[in-house]
Amino acid sequence: MQLDYFQLIDRIVDLDLDEKKITVEAQVPAAHTIFEGHFPGFPIMPGVLLTEAMAQSSGWLLLGLLKFERMPFLAIVKEAKMRGYVSPGQLLTIDAKLEHEGSGFAVTKAKIRVGKELKCSAELTFGLAPFPDPALRVHMDAKAHEIGFPLQAITQ
């Protein structure tokens, strides 16, 4: 994870466009200034960042399903449940699955595990819009390469 750049996904482990699901990994930093205040003596990953990690995972799934033709923007978070603490240094496995897509919106369900232990889950709704600026598309293409997005999955 690169918290300072709000990049919460390290690598794509699996992208299955037929099943409409994705699995990614993210290594929580062992040390970061965010843990100095959240919380002193008991550092844990903020729930809002875990929610954002689920949203970013879902976003990569949607980009693949949309063949990078539209950009997903987080619109609604429902049923977010924090089920356990995430500590510095832990490896997160994040799964997301498309539940519905249509009328300019998409809904996913996502969850984060550490090992086999479920840490959080949420239902996420995204607005789908054309890329607002060509520079953003170039940036997203570069990030896709960086995290191992299987571009062959969208060129078939």
Rank of each mutant, 00 (worst) to 15 (best):
D4A: 10
F6N: 15
Q7V: 15
L8R: 11
D10P: 13
V13F: 06
E19W: 13
E19S: 12
E19H: 10
I22T: 06
A26D: 01
Q27N: 06
P29I: 05
A30Q: 03
A31Y: 02
F35T: 00
P40C: 11
P40M: 06
I44Q: 00
G47A: 08
V48K: 10
V48H: 10
V48Y: 07
L50H: 00
G59P: 09
W60T: 03
G64T: 13
G64R: 03
L65I: 10
K67D: 09
R70K: 10
R70W: 03
V77W: 14
A80R: 08
K81F: 14
K81I: 14
M82G: 01
M82V: 04
R83W: 05
V86N: 00
G89T: 02
Q90N: 01
T93D: 05
I94M: 06
I94E: 01
D95R: 13
A96R: 02
A96H: 08
L98G: 04
E99I: 03
H100W: 13
H100V: 04
F105V: 13
K111M: 12
C120I: 06
C120T: 11
L124F: 01
T125S: 11
G127A: 15
G127M: 02
P130K: 07
H139Y: 15
D141F: 06
D141I: 15
A142E: 06
K143P: 04
H145Q: 09
E146P: 03
F149E: 11
F149H: 09
P150D: 11
L151T: 15
A153D: 15
I154A: 08
